[in-house]
């Protein structure tokens, strides 16, 4: 029988906000990474009307082995402006103040979907309130024009997740490249020194602690401001097994290292996900 350590338990919070958030997303036909990734934090987040919208459709052109988002390389839909207007509507109706916009990876599009990200940010700015936006982008195959497009649309946070340590890229995200991902963050900061950059990695995929420390150094060299580290959990039968459940104290150690490395903010804990914490938005 499947057993999880005591610190990896969530509670079902099936309240009114949860039902409202989920109902609206479903009514509008929107995608969220919360649902596509089968995130165990969904009750915590939806019950306070926090969600991370997934744009550019629901199918990803890559097939990373940690991820439950469906992969498809043919008959993909073109970026749909309607999708963005629906997100705007959801944000208004739910009175969301801070939002993370992420996407599937669209290697089939010339711009990787960067213009759609930029359009999204511009449309959401039109909600009129002081909405804070984090753009959590794919690597755009390292395309500088695409990165520039998103940066110049001025999200409050520009985010790109490394996901794992370089040694495990071939196993975890074979179609990605560690140095390319570092470059994405570095280039964004070079374009706009005032933009806040952020990255996240998963622990428990078989990496050594020192490798995580070394990733922190690489991120700091790219002038990355914020890091998140959480426990990898296997989202589906086809995905990689968890190699190790790290104890909460190990994540505290990562926080110490992140502080030493000079990150402005760092969030490390078993259930920490890229967009799990509200504190990130506080100055």
């Amino acid at each position: 029988m499947k057993r999880f350590p005591y610190w990896l338990k969530q509670s079902v919070k099936d309240n009114e906000n949860f039902a409202r958030t989920r109902g609206l997303i479903s009514k509008l036909g929107l995608n969220t990474v919360c649902q596509s990734a089968r995130c165990p934090n969904i009750y915590d987040c939806f019950s306070v009307k926090r969600c991370t919208f997934l744009i550019l459709g629901r199918y990803c052109t890559r097939a990373c082995n940690f991820c439950a988002v469906e992969s498809k390389i043919i008959e993909l839909k073109k970026p749909d402006k309607e999708e963005l207007l629906k997100i705007k509507k959801a944000i208004k109706e739910l009175d969301i103040r801070n939002v993370v916009i992420t996407s599937v990876t669209r290697d089939d599009l010339i711009d990787g979907g960067a213009n759609h990200f930029a359009d999204c940010i511009s449309i959401l700015r039109g909600t009129g309130n002081s909405l804070k936006i984090e753009a959590l982008v794919p690597d755009f195959l390292g395309d500088k024009n695409s990165i520039e497009k998103v940066v110049s649309s001025k999200p409050d946070i520009f985010s790109h997740n490394l996901e794992t340590v370089p040694r495990l890229y071939s196993k975890v995200r074979p179609q990605a490249d560690y140095n390319r991902s570092i470059e994405v963050l570095k280039f964004a900061k070079e374009l706009d020194s005032r933009i806040i950059t952020k990255s996240g990695i998963m622990a428990g995929l078989g990496e050594f602690r020192e490798e995580i420390r070394s990733v922190m150094q690489d991120l700091r060299k790219a002038d990355c401001d914020i890091i998140t580290i959480g426990q990898y959990l296997k989202p589906g039968a086809d995905c990689l097994d968890v190699e190790e459940f790290l104890e909460p104290a190990e994540f505290d150690k990562f926080s110490e290292w992140a502080k030493e490395a000079g990150f402005k903010k760092y969030y490390c804990g078993p259930f920490v996900r890229s967009s799990y914490t509200e504190e990130i938005w506080q100055n």
Partner: peptide
């Protein structure tokens, strides 16, 4: 309860 991904307490 446990799923493949995590454990949940049901209230």
């Amino acid at each position: 309860m446990a799923t493949d991904k995590a454990a949940f307490n049901v209230p």
